[in-house]
Write a protein that binds this DNA or RNA. Sequence first.
DNA 1: GATCGTTTGATACAAACGTTTGAAACAAAC
DNA 2: GTTTGTTTCAAACGTTTGTATCAAACGATC
Lengths: 217, 217
Amino acid sequence: MSQNDEHDPTKERLLDQAEALFAQKGYDAVSVREITTAARCNLAAVNYHFGSKENLYVEVFRARWAPRAMRVQKSFRDSLAAQDEASPTTVARALAEAFLIGPLSDEERYRHHQLMAREMGQPTEAFKLVAEEIIQPFFRQLADMLRPALPKGLDKEGLMLNILSMFAIVLYFNFARAAVTRMTGREYDEAFKARLVEHITEFSLNGLGGSKEEVSP
Amino acid sequence: MSQNDEHDPTKERLLDQAEALFAQKGYDAVSVREITTAARCNLAAVNYHFGSKENLYVEVFRARWAPRAMRVQKSFRDSLAAQDEASPTTVARALAEAFLIGPLSDEERYRHHQLMAREMGQPTEAFKLVAEEIIQPFFRQLADMLRPALPKGLDKEGLMLNILSMFAIVLYFNFARAAVTRMTGREYDEAFKARLVEHITEFSLNGLGGSKEEVSP
DNA sequence: GATCGTTTGATACAAACGTTTGAAACAAAC
DNA sequence: GTTTGTTTCAAACGTTTGTATCAAACGATC
């Protein structure tokens, strides 16, 4: 064998272009020809490297989406570690910052959440991978962080609903940019994203049981 | 002319089946043959009645989606009118109830929010219609209701962000049922939907400036 | 009951789809 | 320099796509 590493240029280009197109248009609206043209390679390359269009889609999640999700999670943990303690306020702000500003470029973030939203609404084979290896472990971490600061009477399910709601908002403000821009009249520049972080932090506080705290750091 | 009313059985069946399939699979994953087979009519019927597949899609929003959105809004206004006053608490609860329980069957609600989520992430011609005639007027109503109860210092944009966040949560718990069921282990039965209404009401309160109130009615 | 516009039906069409093929090009090993 | 395994390429495969065509069936009006 000659290689099992990840440095085949054609394969890399296919993954990049496939992800961008799948995120932008959805699986069925993208043709293999469109992907291979964008990746400047032959039509047969998809079937040679990935076996099928569907395998390529799943591989996009394994090789591109999941690593990027890990980077976002790390960004969240780092900015939280810089705080004195993990109060609901600091957790909420760190989460909003990681997912709305964080380590990703604007285009990366858009791709990331478009793909996520599509899988949320219509789970495929890729969702199993994403849920088991990325989302569930992260939610467990979040729950462990927040549990000590919980108000009495909030059970495990209630905590999960709160975490889901925070994610719903973060997801929405990323994947529905067009709608948000239309409703607010604002583009996603740095000022607006900072505003969104403030908003999400404040909005999430009550659910997280931190309504008695001050929002500003 | 023989008719301009809405009682052509074939046309109606086409709209029904098209909506169900578009919601379930997305525009590109559904073929005209699939729609006409489901509607038990000839292949040519789509082009005869709607001119093209794309027109049919837009017409689904005009003839099915929009009227249903109006029914949900009416349900919201009615349950709010039964209250003494439109406090943030009652508004939040009425909204959650209208969109999670409300007048729609479970399948209707699922269709409705699937289509909405798709248009949010990737707006088409249909989104213009939906935004201008349904969403924006409703948001204006909501803003007018909430404005008197606003805490000081919450500007127009902040109010819009709060409304968007409430909708993000409501949308998410409807269109991402599969993901929510996976994370919580709960099916969307009456008990869970009631739990979700409670959760959303409470979660939204801080953002809406009602954190000083009691949640239970 | 003949005539009209309207709706259905079977069929045809070119274009695009995902996938397969087999030969050419390539790089490394001997 | 030949051999070997890997990758790329143009071309073609059989299906399926959205749309067009046109005759048959229908329903009301005269």
